[in-house]
Amino acid sequence: MQTDTPKSVRPKRTLTEISIRYGFLALMAGLLIFFSVIAEGFASPYSAVFIFQSVAITGILALGVTATLVVDGFDLSIGSTATSALMLSAYVLVVLEMNAFVAVVACLVMGAAVGFINGILIVKFRVPDLLATLGMMFLLIGLQRIPTQGRSIATGMTLPDGRVAEGTFSKAFLSLGRYRFDFFIENLIPVSVIVLLVVGFLVWVFMELTRHGRLMYAIGSNSRAASLAGTNVNRYKILAYMISGVLASVGGILLAARLGRGDIASGNNLLLDSVAAALIGFAVLGAAKPNAFGTIIGALFIGILLQGLTMMNAPYYTQDFVKGAVLVVALVFTFALSKRGGAH
């Protein structure tokens, strides 16, 4: 009987495989070089930090989307979870006049609860994921308006019962949005960027290095097989939605700290932008699957493109068009060119 001893050498990669693997990163490098040459001031630390800052909140939400995509789910409620956290933190600080710590904890608990309810709707009541989270999205958009009768929250506003809200956004809370760490240059890196990098690293470690991440990928690929291998599929799915909910509320907290008021109208673009970043992430390194590293690269890619175009004086209303175009190109990379995506 012929038993080949398995060798650990990977087969040689063909040109297509190389381009699928590194094509997107090469494109991004090309873009960086292009803007550095064309747009004056693009290649500076401040510009780099600005790009990171512009995508930090989107990126954090996108990491939550990634977690649900891994278990073959989808969370449409992240945008409204983030704005709910924004309103909740403002409510706790301004109306209830409590401190920053309480506000942050309340938001995180709310995010986890929203994720848990999403998960229960999906695994116990068998509502399809898109519909369950769509329902949750509407519910939250409505809910966050009820306590203040649809108005934004700021110090000095009149409450429904006639009182005047005396609370303020405390310094500690605002510093989450406004403090900058020194990094070679004084006051360079904002908190949100650090949070993005830390959360990104943690999600990456969880998904790639732990058995929980492994089993979540197994569920996403063939949930029946994962279940027959003894995996508690429902528990992991709920966990994924809870991760998504918590990360969305982290985004909301950072947004509230940056704005300094409970602005009812902000955060409209969060859902679409973060979904786009997570999907663009499929194309990075030819992964053809949701992954934390790719998601961050995807978010940065959009940030670089928009920053570069803005510095070249492209009008703001072209931004969504550019994002859409990037997303379509990335999806072609993932599904048409890669073997895994195309071999159906």
């Binding site: 492994r214 089993l215 197994a218 996403g220 690929s221 063939n222 029946r224 097989a225 994962a226 291998a229």
Partner: peptide
């Protein structure tokens, strides 16, 4: 195909799933 194979996984990961 429907009950056992995890199509996105390589051989190693497929073996060690349970």
């Amino acid at each position: 195909a429907s009950n056992a194979v995890i199509p996105d996984f390589d051989i190693t990961k497929n073996i060690t799933v349970p």
